[in-house]
Write a protein that binds this DNA or RNA. Sequence first.
DNA 1: TGACATTCGTTAGGGGCCATACTATATGGC
DNA 2: GCCATATAGTATGGCCCCTAACGAATGTCA
Lengths: 171, 171
Amino acid sequence: MLFVRDFPDEAMLLDISRRFNSMDPRAVRACLALGLTTRDMRESFERFLSQYGLSNGRFLVLAVMFRTPDEAVSPSSLAHGVGVTRATMTGLLDGLERDGLVTRADDAEDRRKKLVRLTPQGQELIQRVLPEHSRRTTRFAACLTCEEWVTLTALLARIQSGIEAFENIDK
Amino acid sequence: MLFVRDFPDEAMLLDISRRFNSMDPRAVRACLALGLTTRDMRESFERFLSQYGLSNGRFLVLAVMFRTPDEAVSPSSLAHGVGVTRATMTGLLDGLERDGLVTRADDAEDRRKKLVRLTPQGQELIQRVLPEHSRRTTRFAACLTCEEWVTLTALLARIQSGIEAFENIDK
DNA sequence: TGACATTCGTTAGGGGCCATACTATATGGC
DNA sequence: GCCATATAGTATGGCCCCTAACGAATGTCA
């Protein structure tokens, strides 16, 4: 019932639930809201990044690398840091390298590895993005009070552990 | 800072925020939780659907069509109902037709249109999925109390209108 | 040292989604 | 009837992400 992109579906899904099982519409509505809110956040964020020719994945790569701008990192550790597979990282780095934001060199010590480095253009770009990103996040944080954010986190944590619980039943 | 798939990033992003701007870590944490919870819900849901050879999109198509199992619908209205573009719907229908869950026929009245219908196999499948889906949703709803779901919805609504607000500033 | 396992980056192939642009058809205003 | 416009479905090509499998390099341990 989750993960719809359009509002008409709310009616449709409520309809389906009604036909099959009397489910609490408040929970259904909240799930819908969860999906839609997250989608809106994501879209807003990606629209912002796209002004700089970045996607979420590309941004995270640059951001991770910018923590140690002068050190080279391996694609593998980047993949872990960003939270994608190594295969996906290959694709991201292909794009970033093509756009001149990053370089890949061989590692003399461990010849399986590559050494990824930010180019000056890469550093310049991420330094231009991050402050604005920061401003956006601050504005975003103002949507709720501190207590409300804490409440939200607590509720989400309960949902997550609930999912985990019945995930284990399923399997 | 949202939309990370892995936990190490929390540290990383807090680090970034700290370096650039003192942001409320409670808000950052909540955003992270929002993204992670939604992802977990989505993954749990998709894992469930994949047992039946369905994806979120494919499931929604069948579910929408199952509201009127005997009526034919156009790809266009399906796209609107499911919330994807017409181009995406073409792809979804290609797959569903290939798997024998759906048929496409020409519309004699309006020769631009196609008429999509559930096959008996399609009906059988969605009828097998929906009750289990319903049970899952019910279990899911039990994660929080009714009041808590209402609270959650309210908080999310505030976030959404907040996003909308500064989305309008940006553009 | 040699055999085995593990790690690295990559390729190949898939799904999901999008925007864009094309063809065929329909429709409203003249 | 004719033309501009809108709509329907699709093809193409792109991005993001995945799994599976590969060759090369390295680690391990008898």
